[in-house]
Design a protein around this nucleic acid. Sequence first.
DNA 1: GCCAACGTTGGC
DNA 2: GCCAACGTTGGC
Length: 137
Amino acid sequence: MAYWLFKSEPDAWSWDQQVAKGDAGEEWTGVRNYQARNNMRAMKLGDKGFFYHSNIGKEIVGIVEVSAECHPDSSTDDPRWECVDIRAIRPLPRAITLEEAKAEPRLADMALVKNTRLSVQPVTDAEWKVICELAGL
DNA sequence: GCCAACGTTGGC
DNA sequence: GCCAACGTTGGC
């Protein structure tokens, strides 16, 4: 199983909205970046991911699961763009801020810290464990 | 609200 | 195929 991180501006799509979708989940539409799309293409059903609030909050707030593998993005007719569906699994007991991630030496190489503009990123097993530990899981 | 980083576009 | 111009993301 692989791990990922999904960024969203809570103004546009927040964790609360994601939770409200329940087990049905929601299409992760709107990604218009090849690297991010390629990451979604690599996702398998059941893969886990962090849900990160960019701009407002700047923190990892919850855990999601891939509920449908990559398919055409219904928000556009452009066949280049595809996306997965994700559903909320659980909130983190304690949100992990970007500041904390930057301060943690074991997360120094994390894409969240190094490649701030990538909206869908891979997370290594080690990074996943560190964040779960910091979050109190 | 500003601006740095970075991705994309389009002229040559 | 290069690179300047431009647009967008996202932290501050």
